[in-house]
């Protein structure tokens, strides 16, 4: 199952489906990095609203995506983590430290726009 990536101005938006395998996640990571380079994007939003489980692998992949993209000079924000998923994540000790988070797509875009302003 491939993760669709949408380009909206300087921002790329990747929307996760419910049941992603490790291979899907790895595929997403390389696709995102490639497209950030290709479109010279300044921000990436990863929307995980549909994800019902965020385990250590998914969490680590998200962190890696954010770090790699930062090395390309762009910002990543994770949006849409569900309350129950967040609760399970912190029990597991997965806190996505150093990665920006926002409530939903709208908030994620607002966060990035704010960032772009201060970066100028």
């Amino acid at each position: 199952m491939e993760v669709p990536i949408l380009k909206q101005g300087p921002v790329l938006i990747a929307t996760f489906q419910a049941a992603l395998s490790d291979a899907d996640l790895n595929q997403l990571r390389s696709a995102l990095v490639q497209q950030v380079v290709r479109f010279r994007s300044r921000g990436v939003i990863v929307d995980v609203t549909a994800m019902d489980v965020m385990d250590s692998f998914a969490s680590r992949t998200l962190r890696e995506i954010a770090h790699i993209i930062r090395l390309r000079g762009a910002e990543t924000v994770i949006v849409g983590i569900q309350p129950e998923v967040a609760f399970a994540m912190v029990q597991l000790g997965l806190t996505l430290e150093g990665v920006a988070t926002a409530l939903d797509l709208e908030e994620g875009l607002a966060y990035l726009n704010q960032k772009f302003k201060t970066m100028k």
């Binding site: 019902d52 489980v53 965020m54 399970a88 029990q91």
Partner: peptide, 14 residues
Amino acid sequence: SSGDATLIATAISE
């Protein structure tokens, strides 16, 4: 509850 089901599903995943 769906909250507990999420905890259980996450444990199984690990």
